[in-house]
Design a protein around this nucleic acid. Structure first.
Lengths: 157, 157
DNA sequence: AGTGAAAGGAGCGATAC
DNA sequence: GTATCGCTCCTTTCACT
């Protein structure tokens, strides 16, 4: 199932699709210097090999009235059960955009997107703190976004 | 330029396109309960009004050999010039996936994606610390990803 | 606002190199 | 592995409700 090495054309395809996921196959083929058929086959292969997980519309957070982004450190009672419960709960909160286990003292680092501070209070108090095992929630808020990219750094060639 | 309110159909369109940005217009129209023509017109309007910033292929970080994600707190000499220089520099480092100004003590919070710790050392020492005005760089590393979504939370209806 | 039809173009399979 | 052909379906515009 799936190739294990990427040649230069594959990398060009991935780079182009990171920039514009709705490129038509003919346009993509032209950008990467292939004719449409082999280009499409490569894209399908990259999808099936799992290099491409999917495609998404990138929405404008502020335009949608989502003015508040918070990074939240969550401490929970450390046991396997509590972890599983917490993870499942977080999975189902759409305001939690991402959730990582980190090195250092904190247990989880969450990124939360909400319309305003009231909505943040709601998520923090009524959702996160309600999850059994959650001991501490510490929030920092984003004052300004310098950069926010969905594109991963790919090897040069 | 552009509508200022979103009706239920608009929200269904945005939600569907967040999940699958390559949906064909006919499939999208079916999912949101419209016929293709008005559906396409709405999508175009949403794009031009800035609700949809663009479309991107979502790549699999690990499959691409990018095993290390770090959150990096960067302290810089606080003056307008230094800030502008720092922002411009960060903009041009593809390994820096995002960069925020945060409340609290740290000046910037960066998210960095690299293949391994050697590459991280390279970015940290030879790129970030080289930027004039950068005083301190503190890194935490992601041990596990519980959730990582590009989808923003949209109002229910 | 939504519907329906019509033309141009793209996707995608088959085939050949 | 790559390109060309050809059929089908989608996209997109226009006239109409």
């Amino acid at each position: 199932m799936g190739k294990s090495t990427l040649d230069a054309a594959d990398l060009r395809i991935l780079e182009a699709l990171q920039r514009n996921g709705r490129l038509s196959n003919v346009d993509l083929a032209e950008q990467v210097g292939l004719s449409p058929s082999p280009c499409l086959r490569r894209v399908r292969d990259l999808e099936e090999a799992g290099y491409i997980q999917g495609y998404a519309a990138i929405l404008d957070r502020r335009r949608l009235g989502l003015g508040v982004v918070a990074f939240v450190e969550v401490k929970i009672d450390q046991n396997a059960e509590g972890d599983a419960v917490f993870r499942r709960a977080v999975e189902r909160i759409p305001e939690v955009v991402s959730c990582f286990v980190m090195t250092g003292t904190m247990d989880y680092l969450l990124q939360v997107v909400v319309p305003d501070l009231d909505a943040y209070a709601e998520v923090s108090m009524k959702r996160l703190l309600q999850i059994p095992g959650v001991k501490d929630v510490r929030s920092s808020f984003v004052l300004d976004v310098v950069k926010h990219s969905t594109a991963l750094p790919l090897p040069p060639a």
